[in-house]
Design a protein around this nucleic acid. Structure first.
Lengths: 194, 194
DNA sequence: ACGGTACTGAACATGATGTTCAGTACCTCA
DNA sequence: TGAGGTACTGAACATCATGTTCAGTACCGT
């Protein structure tokens, strides 16, 4: 890829991130990004459709990273209780090491756009995992798979949000443990009616 | 309250709702609302700060409704498994009877603003419930209450979202049962570590 | 060093937001 | 029922963000 293209896109990503930390996603205008990145207006629009497009393209990296962790966990031996949702710890760690960015996102009420994109990424991962747990869509007493996928993703996002609100008094491992303690029993007890 | 004020606010609410159904929340402009409601621009801004303010004021009714159901459930005898989260069925029923509105909200990726407001309303209700379950903040092995609150709200919103996506193949009672089957065990097993 | 591609930057069109204010209509309350 | 107050009107204006266009310039890959 042309070096100029790389440079430009890097500058734009950096600019967006640093601006989000300062003002929150919504408050950032395209003009802000251009000024910070030192990139011409028309240039921006040749690369991205808009602010959100730039954001989404940044989330692709995270997605790849989590996918690797998931694959590793699925390959190893163990019950679902141990190997299931094998990307969750990696996610908590990623959030922790970028917590200034995430704080700018979740605190501000603005970050719902970002979170929506993140949801989509996570839903794919969770669906993968559940497929290995029970490859056939559903046995008679199971819950619909999509319901469970939505449930898990919602729970995960919620715990992360809470954890960030607490300003990381807990380590990533501890937060992950809470998430798993709340969520895994629900998944595994599916077949057992109330 | 001055009858003119009532009329104006009613018209504005109706307009917003019908427009949301047609275009989704984000796509609606203040001007759209004014045209539909037949209300002057300056009038709008004397009543509401903006589009979102109008929306939020509409959610107040729902909040009151759910609170009543919760109070009734808490007053009745029974284990937490039966009386806990006593507003959930009422919520599923409310969503069902306004499903055209909610479909416009959740489908469109736009509705995150609405959902954020709804989250806040639900968090208050859930917190109420959990307080009655264990009035003291936490025994040693319990999870932090806020974590559980976030978890429950996230799960609830997720199940509702999924349910709407399925275009209501299930009755409100069935969807509610799924939610409770996934969530209540997680709450009740809190003290039991993995 | 050449051909091609990417970047520039200013100008423009568009469209939404929110404010102002003098004039008009309507409501409440006595 | 009428007087006084309050709410609504609507047009004009200021502001600001978005997204497009295009001729000119700088830089890259080979």
């Amino acid at each position: 890829m042309d070096r100029r293209v790389q440079r430009t896109r890097d500058m734009l990503h950096q600019a967006l991130i640093s601006l989000m930390i300062e003002k929150g996603y919504e408050a950032v205008t395209v003009q802000d990004i251009l000024d910070r990145a030192n990139v011409g207006r028309s240039t921006f629009y040749t690369h991205y459709v808009g602010k959100q497009d730039l954001l989404i393209s940044g989330l692709k990296n995270l997605s790849k990273h989590l996918l690797e962790h998931q694959r590793a966990a699925l390959a190893s031996k163990g019950s679902f209780r141990e190997t299931g949702l094998g990307f969750s710890l990696a996610l908590f760690e990623h959030v922790h090491s970028h917590r200034n960015v995430y704080n700018a996102i979740v605190g501000r009420q603005s970050g719902t756009v970002v979170m929506t994109e993140l949801r989509a990424v996570l839903a794919d991962l969770v669906r993968n995992d559940l497929k290995t747990l029970s490859p056939n869509e559903r046995s008679s007493s199971d819950l619909p798979r999509n319901a469970v996928v939505h449930f898990v993703v919602g729970a995960l996002i919620s715990v992360i949000t809470w954890w960030l609100d607490e300003r990381s008094k807990l380590s990533p491992a501890e937060a992950d443990a809470i998430f798993r303690r709340l969520t895994l029993p629900a998944i595994l007890n599916q077949g057992r009616p109330l």
